[in-house]
């Protein structure tokens, strides 16, 4: 099986600190994979390096057989790989619908964009009522939904999600993860970064454990959840 995303021996240094070392990781088309680890383990750095926001020191990133390494972020985004950044990153002084349209920035097909917009509204009814509201006035959960909807407007084949549960009330976390699962059911691959390991392993089929910038464990989520080291360090047992 050929991987959609294939990272090999990725190393990233951040202001003199080795944030990620020799990281290798694969995501198959349509697969849901999580990357778990403590605060500062290098999860966000990994996503930033994949999406072109920071240049890696060494290693390679291939997407659908093409090298992404050292492409600027806007070029990476055009290839069908969309990052929903930590803290959601909605444009606060733009309306909901303008944010969604920014997701479709690289697309020119007006008719299908309009259809996708309807689909996003159908998936996220809370946004429909607020389409003219400024995104900065939405609640945290609504902003996370907007960020997901905006990412869908790009029609990605791989979605990179950075801590989508961060700062959300438990009920809202459930709602957001329901949406993520629905998106993934539409044949979008997901690479999920989460501190909430329990939720991440429950949602994704496979996972990687990152510690101090190094992958220490990987495998099927069920196996990881059963692993005593993971249970102790990340599942709070």
């Amino acid at each position: 099986m050929s991987a959609l995303l294939s990272i090999s021996q990725l190393s990233v240094a951040y202001g003199g600190i080795q944030a990620v070392r020799d990281l290798s990781l694969e995501v198959a088309p349509g697969e849901m994979v999580c990357l778990i680890g403590a605060n500062g383990a290098g999860k966000t750095t990994t996503l930033k390096a994949i999406s072109g926001l920071i240049a890696p020191q060494a290693g390679s990133v291939h997407f659908d057989g093409q090298a992404l390494t050292r492409l600027p972020a806007h070029e990476v985004a055009r290839r069908g790989l969309t990052l929903v950044p930590e803290g959601r990153g909605v444009f606060p002084r733009m309306s909901v619908v303008e944010n969604l349209m920014m997701g479709a920035y690289t697309r020119r097909d007006r008719a299908t964009i309009a259809r996708d917009l309807d689909q996003v509204y159908a998936l996220l009814p809370r946004l429909t009522e607020r389409r003219a509201q400024l995104a900065g006035l939405l609640s945290g959960g609504e902003q996370q939904m907007l960020a997901l909807g905006r990412a869908m407007m790009a029609r990605p084949r791989l979605l990179l999600l950075d801590e989508p549960s961060m700062g959300l009330a438990p009920l809202m976390v459930q709602a957001v993860f329901d949406i993520i699962r629905q998106i993934a059911a539409g044949d979008v691959a997901v690479l999920l970064v989460e501190q909430n390991a329990h939720l991440a392993l429950k949602t994704c089929a496979r996972g990687y454990v990152l510690e101090n910038g190094v992958v220490t464990l990987s495998g099927m989520s069920a196996d990881l959840s059963a692993n005593p080291a993971v249970r102790q360090a990340y599942l709070g047992e």
């Binding site: 999406s51 072109g52 926001l53 600027p72 972020a73 806007h74 985004a77 055009r78 969309t82 990052l83 950044p85 990153g89 909605v90 444009f91 606060p92 002084r93 733009m94 303008e98 349209m101 920014m102 997701g103 920035y105 690289t106 905006r150 790009a154």
Partner: peptide
């Protein structure tokens, strides 16, 4: 729209393909 998005967050705008 790209100008306004860039003004609000250069990084996120680039993630949108700007």
């Amino acid at each position: 729209r790209a100008m306004r998005a860039t003004a609000q967050s250069r990084q996120v705008a680039s993630l949108m393909g700007v």
